[in-house]
Design a binder for these strands. Structure first.
Length: 434
RNA sequence: GCCCCCAUCGUCUAGCGGCCUAGGACACCACCCUCUCAAGGUGGCGGCACGGGUUCAAAUCCCGUUGGGGGUACCA
């Protein structure tokens, strides 16, 4: 009884113009299992009408999956090109008396007797009594096949062995099983109905009120491996408690039987935290490339050359959790004048020691070697002369030069800004103070 | 309404009858480190929905209650 059949999975999205987070997770789980078992993953595009068959919508699916790192085997299957198969199946069903015409549509006859059940990997045995399943349409009056029919025909025809999909499809499963059997199949694929991804109201993620597009997270600066890693954690967990890890390891550990049955809330905070982990682990060059578009989107951005960008990356790398945050962390380095945050000014520059400290630093900075090391030493000494620890001493300088109380390491920032510009900003602050 | 499913810290999860005075992660709080902020380190807060069984023993098995969700289209 050892079936050595190679698992064959499929991901079957409808081209809606964007990949839904839930769909992305479904794609990922299919992919994980296929790769884990050395099986195959078929990409089946459910472009069942002319509007959905538009090339740009389908390309969007390819691009989204590729971004996430999900590949598939063979050419994508397009349902729009398989109508002849569906029509054949419908004719056969009608011929066999399993389906009948009703107001121009064709319905599959379910009847009231018996039940259909299957052993779901995630949910155990699920049973539907036929008396609760209505006769359902398999061909619309316009001649097109419905989802149920196409689904059953394709899974059979493509030799799909494992159906991994969202829980919102459990109720269609008995229909698909009935069709499959009516079409002559004696076997059933393995079914695994994944728990839904829900919002903070515990409702299924909806396009209307939730940010469900994979692309929108990408735009905000979630990087692909972080997203894939996080998605893998929704409904599944590694046996060793190591959550953030390379996808290759997740492929190795992943099992359908380990998937949870209960809905998982999409937690942007956790996603963001994981994203920060990945950002910190990037090389300077890779991170520089990754934030380039975000820099360029700033008014001051396009002028920043690659060399400068790379120098600045270490300053923001452990401070940015989202790529989109990157420009705001180092922008002051590229302004003609720092944008002074008034709250910061009020907090720091109104202290008695602010002006004396700036005075001291102007003198001290005049003829030191312009390195972060010497700047550090000079600032420390200037502060001590005023009875200030470094923490207090550096504050006015920071506000004068960066415009804020918080930011990247001050002395590295000063080093990058250069002596002339740094002193110019400090002078400007002194002028404002006196 | 009817059908189906779900139920461990606020959230994601580990647990698959004894290793559990329930482990990890995110979030939160405190402390340490420290030029600010981060990052990092240490510690803390916090949970098996409830009620019955079964068993020597239940977070783990069964039943019920309650709560939540999904589906109820000639959409997919």
């Amino acid at each position: 009884m050892t079936d050595q059949v190679v698992p064959r999975l499929r991901f079957a999205p409808a081209p809606t113009g964007f990949l839904h987070l839930g769909s992305a997770r479904t794609a990922l789980f299919n992919w994980l299992y296929a790769r884990h078992t050395g099986g195959e993953l078929v990409l089946r595009v459910e472009d069942t009408n002319a509007e959905l068959a538009r090339p740009e919508l389908i390309d969007n699916i390819y691009e989204s999956l590729e971004w996430l790192g999900i590949d598939w085997d063979g050419e994508p299957v397009r349902q729009s090109q398989r109508d002849h198969l569906y029509q054949e199946a419908i004719d056969r069903l009608v011929g066999d008396g399993r389906a009948y015409e009703d107001d121009g549509a064709i319905r599959f006859r379910v009847g009231d007797a018996g039940s259909t059940s299957w052993d779901d990997v995630v949910r155990g045995t699920v049973t539907f009594e036929h008396e609760h399943v209505e006769d359902f349409v398999i061909r619309r009056s316009d001649g097109s096949a419905t989802f149920f029919l196409a689904n059953a025909v394709d899974d059979l025809d493509l030799g799909i062995t494992h159906v991994v999909r969202g829980e919102d499809l459990v109720n269609v499963t008995p229909k698909v099983i009935m069709l499959r059997r009516a079409l002559g199949a004696t076997d059933l694929p393995v079914f695994a109905h994944l728990p839904l991804i829900v919002n903070d109201k515990r409702k299924k993620l909806s396009k209307r009120r939730d940010d469900v597009s994979l692309a929108s997270y990408r735009e905000r600066g979630i990087i692909a491996p972080a997203m894939a890693n996080y998605l893998a954690l929704l409904g599944w967990g590694p046996p060793d408690d190591v959550e953030v890890r390379p996808m290759s390891e997740i492929v190795e550990l992943f099992e359908l039987t380990d998937i949870n049955a209960s809905a998982a809330m999409f937690d942007l905070k956790k996603l963001t935290a994981i994203n920060g982990d990945y950002i910190r682990a990037m090389s300077v060059d890779d991170l520089a490339d990754a934030i380039r578009p975000y820099i360029d989107a700033e008014p001051w951005g396009p002028g920043v050359d690659d060399e400068s960008l790379r120098r600045v990356v270490p300053l923001l790398q452990e401070r940015a959790k989202l790529l989109e945050e990157a420009p705001g962390i180092v922008d002051f380095l590229f302004f003609d004048d720092p944008e002074i945050d008034e709250a910061s000014w009020q907090k720091i520059m109104t202290t008695e020691t602010a002006l004396p400290m700036l005075d001291a630093v102007v003198t001290a900075y005049a003829d030191i070697e312009w390195t972060s090391h010497d700047l550090h030493a000079a600032t420390l000494a200037a502060g001590e002369a005023l009875g200030l620890k470094l923490g207090k001493a550096q504050a006015p300088v920071r506000v004068a030069v960066t415009g804020r109380t918080v930011g990247p390491p001050l002395f590295e920032s000063l080093e990058m800004l250069g002596r002339d510009e740094s002193l110019r900003r400090i002078e400007a602050a002194r002028t404002r103070l006196t």
